[in-house]
């Protein structure tokens, strides 16, 4: 036993060699950009590079705090992301519980196969579909036409746009969201159901007293971890669906950061807004992990 250990100790360098390529990539593309954050505190001039650009201290921080656009997009971000979490959270739980009651496995598998599908398609593909079905001549307006509702461009209206975003996000993700609950449901001891039948419990009572308590820990865990997404309203989705008509209510932090950088070429401001968002986001995620550990004793790592 000890001989193996001693032998392996002389080979430990092999493990460091194995991990080295990955470490090089992380340094290049994850740690070097951290140094690039400096441009949030500089007047970044692409011709001079990061180091030679002049320092401006907190100029862009002060500028950002006074910019009405920043407050508008922060509001929109929290509004859209918050409603996505709030309204999207119960849907997969409900669907998983309903699937759990299905006894015909071909029906269950069929439903699962279909509802998982949108998860695997990119937001570009889905935006192609959504822009078509919600267009003035799309199937949604045709359907509403049967009830005498005039065609309306829901994606070009500030009141309806956030709701389309929330609804289509739930549409994409609810099916896949059931997987984790279905996995938890298979972990419930069947003996509990058997003994409850002897005690005279019907299906409804079983759901209420065995099934739901069985998945409560995982429900609490996903609820806590989803709090880390309060600032993530969905860049890929909104970037592909928004348009100049809905900037008031549809523009979010991430789309704003992109436009400030690549359309207005104000690199320093974009980096500053991105940095503040990133810091707050990390704090939220760490708080979520910490809470999850305190409450459910679940270690994410």
């Amino acid at each position: 036993m000890n001989r193996i250990k001693r032998r392996l100790a002389t080979k430990e360098w092999q493990l460091h060699l194995m991990i080295a390529p990955g470490v090089v990539f992380l340094i290049l593309f994850s740690y070097l950009p951290l140094y690039g954050i400096l441009i949030a505190f500089k007047e970044f001039l692409p011709s001079k590079g990061i180091w030679a650009s002049p320092w401006v201290g907190l100029k862009y921080f002060d500028f950002m705090m006074k910019l009405p656009d920043v407050w508008r997009v922060t509001n929109n971000t929290i509004y859209i992301a918050g409603l996505k979490i709030l309204l999207g959270f119960p849907v997969p739980i409900g669907i998983a519980l309903m699937l759990n009651e299905v006894r015909r496995s071909f029906f269950k598998k069929g439903v699962q196969t279909i509802i998982y599908l949108p998860h695997f398609l990119s937001w570009v593909i889905l935006a192609g579909l959504i822009l078509d079905v919600f267009s003035l001549t799309g199937i949604v307006n045709s359907f509403l036409g049967w009830f005498g509702i005039e065609p309306f461009y829901y994606l070009g209206d500030n009141r309806s746009f956030p709701w389309i975003i929330i609804a289509t996000d739930i549409w994409k993700n609810f099916g896949w969201g059931t997987v984790i609950y279905l996995a938890a449901l298979t972990g419930i001891d069947p003996a509990l159901y058997e003994s409850s039948v002897i005690d005279g419990a019907n299906r409804w009572k079983q759901t209420l007293h065995i099934t739901i308590p069985g998945i409560v820990p995982i429900i609490i865990l996903t609820a806590i971890l989803s709090l880390g997404n309060v600032l993530n309203a969905g860049f890929e989705q909104i970037f592909n669906l928004y348009n100049p008509l809905v900037m008031d209510r549809g523009d979010i932090l991430d789309t704003y950061v992109y436009r400030v950088a690549f359309q207005e070429t104000n690199w320093s401001l974009s980096t500053m807004v991105g940095l503040i968002k990133s810091v707050v986001n990390s704090v939220l995620i760490i708080a979520g992990y910490w809470l999850a550990y305190r409450i459910t004793k679940y270690r994410v790592f």
């Binding site: 954050i37 690199w267 974009s270 980096t271 990390s282 760490i286």
Partner: peptide, 9 residues
């Protein structure tokens, strides 16, 4: 948990 963000990358 934390990355440089869009522009630095």
């Amino acid at each position: 948990l934390f990355n440089g963000g869009l522009v630095p990358t």
